[in-house]
């Protein structure tokens, strides 16, 4: 067995890691298996170790935050979780299943959904069509049914239409269902990305800087919406954010990355007072 496989089997035996040293899982989730476990996850690009020894456990309905300065490797972690990159070391166990060797499409079908830092919408399609793409694997019918326009086609299309409007109403966007996605304002595009990700019926939602470019009022609205999404859909959410008010306001457990390594993990209060975290963001206090 390779060293990597050895490491994996060792850690798969000890699923529930003792708290609070390695994980912050909310009280309500203590008796259920966590939705995500990463063990010594790392990726190396040539000589550069972009992420090193990343351990994280996320509870089934937890809102977790991943913060750190720019270039710390947060989006790289997301890419490894969604299998855009294959990690060079460590393992990801999602919903009890080992994610090694899975493709992006398989990861999506297992229940991980994500938004992108630089918005990746389908610009030439309308808002509703973008959400319906999310519903692709939820409400299905075959191509033959579509070509012959059998009754199942009309039933499923209507169901998709209704579900899409339902999802859009989370952000109050049903009115712009027929607008071309590329012509939406920036904030609306970000929200559409979140709706599209939700449409895939995920168990874990990864949000990459959802509050980027939003004013304080919009950020507060977003905070409430995220909490509402977690309550209504009963999913876990992992956020990458730079806006501390959002992170401290809504995240139950926060993990801080710097230069690819975890430097702190804990609740909002613990992180706020952690000197290592402060140094990472603001630099060391000058002596004298």
């Amino acid at each position: 067995m390779t060293e990597r496989q050895e490491k994996q089997t060792r850690h798969s035996d000890t699923r529930m890691v003792p708290y609070p040293s390695k994980a912050i899982v909310p009280e309500r989730d203590l008796n259920v298996a966590p939705i995500l476990e990463t063990h010594h996850l790392g990726i190396q690009f040539g000589g550069l170790k972009a992420v090193d020894d990343f351990n994280l456990i996320i509870g089934r309905s937890e809102i977790a935050g991943l913060i750190g300065p720019n270039g710390a490797g947060k989006t790289t972690v997301f890419n490894m979780l969604t299998k855009v990159y294959e990690p060079t070391e460590g393992s990801v166990i999602f919903d009890g299943k080992d994610m090694m060797g899975k493709s992006i499409v398989q990861a999506s079908k297992l229940g991980i959904a994500r938004t992108f830092q630089n918005i990746r919408l389908f610009n030439q399609m309308t808002v509703e069509e973008n959400v319906r793409i999310g519903l692709h694997n939820q409400i299905k019918y075959t191509t033959a049914t579509a070509l012959l326009r059998l009754p199942n086609f009309w039933i499923k299309e209507h169901r998709q239409h209704k579900r899409a409007l339902e999802l859009l109403s989370i952000f109050g966007m049903e009115g712009m269902a027929d607008v071309r996605a590329g012509s939406l304002p920036y904030g609306a595009q970000r929200r559409l990305e979140i709706v599209r990700a939700l449409a895939t019926g995920p168990k874990l939602l990864l949000l990459d800087e959802p509050a980027a470019g939003m004013n304080p009022h919009e950020t507060e609205e977003l905070m409430n919406t995220i909490a509402r999404i977690r309550d209504e859909f009963n999913i876990a959410i992992l956020l990458i954010e730079h806006d501390m008010s959002l992170v401290m306001g809504v995240c139950e457990g926060i993990c801080v990355l710097n230069f690819g390594k975890v430097i702190a993990k804990g609740t909002a209060r613990e992180i706020q007072n952690n000197p290592v975290v402060i140094e990472a963001y603001l630099g060391k206090q000058k002596e004298g």
Binding site: T82, V84, I104, V105, S108, K109, A113, R114, F116, R120, L121, F122, N123, Q124, M125, I133, G134, H136, N137, R196, T200
Partner: peptide, 13 residues
């Protein structure tokens, strides 16, 4: 056509 990576992330082969 519009965005290959996003399509894959949505579970579309």
């Amino acid at each position: 056509r519009d965005n290959r990576i996003a399509a894959e992330s949505m579970g579309i082969p």
